[in-house]
Design a protein around this nucleic acid. Sequence first.
RNA 1: GUGACCGUAGCUCAAUUGGUUAGAGCACCGGACUGUGGCUCCGGGGGUUGGGGGUUCAAUUCCCCUCGGUCACCCCA
Length: 426
Amino acid sequence: MSLDALPGFREFYPAELAERNFIIGAWREVARRYAFAEYDGPPLEPLELYTKKSGDEIVGQLYSFTDKGGREVALRPEMTPTLARMVAAKANALRKPVRWFSIPQLFRYERKQRGRLREHFQLNVDIIGEADVTADAELLSVAIDIMRAFGLTSSDVRARVSDRGLLRGLLVLTGITDDMLPGVYAVVDKMDREPRASLETKLRAAGLHDVFIARVFEVLKHPDLATLRERYGDVPELREDFTRLSRYFEYLDALGVGDWVEFDLSIVRGLAYYTGIVFELFDAKRELRAICGGGRYDSLLKQLGGADLPALGFGMGDVVLGELLRARGRMPEWKPSVDVWVAYGDAALLDDAMRIARRLRDQGRAVEYASGGQQLSRQLKAADAAGAREVLVLQPADLERGEAVVRRLADGTETRVRLDEWIGGR
RNA sequence: GUGACCGUAGCUCAAUUGGUUAGAGCACCGGACUGUGGCUCCGGGGGUUGGGGGUUCAAUUCCCCUCGGUCACCCCA
């Protein structure tokens, strides 16, 4: 019988947990700088929370089961339904815009592969109750500033931005109707990854006639914003979209992140509920999966049975990000750390070592000492292995005078100190 | 869910066409070393060769099944 961890679930040894904490620490710090407040919800939710509403993408991969009370439940695969419920419950009482973030552990029942497990930690940052594009700029700025907090630059990571509103507007111009849009979006998402023939097949399956298919390809031939504006800027139905995007890029510049961002109409994002500007963060070398993705989902909260508030947000997982940080040398190497190792030259001094350890710990120092009666050389060796910065060496004769020797392990220098002063003054 | 490739110690690897008791480095523990760590030398623990079955006098090696891993697809956080 194998008692290994379940497939897709991680065990965090100290070195790995240090990495996870490093990532989560940076997430919290940047979110704090943007004045977002942290919240959390239950890791286990009623299955219905995820199956009832559309979100078909997720349903097939739910980590769900029947609990002992006969309830159909699921480990949370995403945070948004929980967030929607929490906001709805106090919608009128909350100051708008709501600026919240959370770092839930999320679960999916699917096959493990690179950058994708059955469990991960994901930063969720959301702004609720703000329809203006300023919020879109603010949101992307958070994501990019997190990259900067890790020491990554705009040549390590790129943000690609699109606008579902503009894309929809362009497609509607070609005569495509709203019921065809989901199928078209799915194809747009794969535009540069699949041959045209298979894309056409899928468009036909989505109910498009050949004449529409040709128009779709025509619209998407030039996905950059300048060309689009040149060709479609005068179309009245699209004027608002172009204005919104202009302001968006203007604000991103003002927030100091403009040079990380490029427009690409073919960015769609898989989730069907996005309604406006969407974005993804990628490593510039395109070796990894998306680091982060998000956008505006103005009608989702209402669909989820919550408040009718405009909203936008992004998710950023720890798995791909961790891979990127390691690959770019931005993940600090964990090493054990002890402030003071108390060593004793005579086994009879163990009690004294303990008393001194206690006083040092009261001062907030990380203190360790050897168990009974090891020879001094062994204690020093152990102190070194434990990553101790200083060793306090106790000897019977010194101790009688209230003194001890402090050895700095980095360079071996030793100082004779008065114990009370040395402990008390720290 | 589909397909391809790969499984030898905690890690990285070795083991002659199938041939003795499956080895080495690193790591870990201990000794040399009872007033001082890193270096060195010596020693130790640790393997059902992922598991099961088959072929054979003999299987880490060949075959089948299974489990696990990696990658891609699907999908996407």
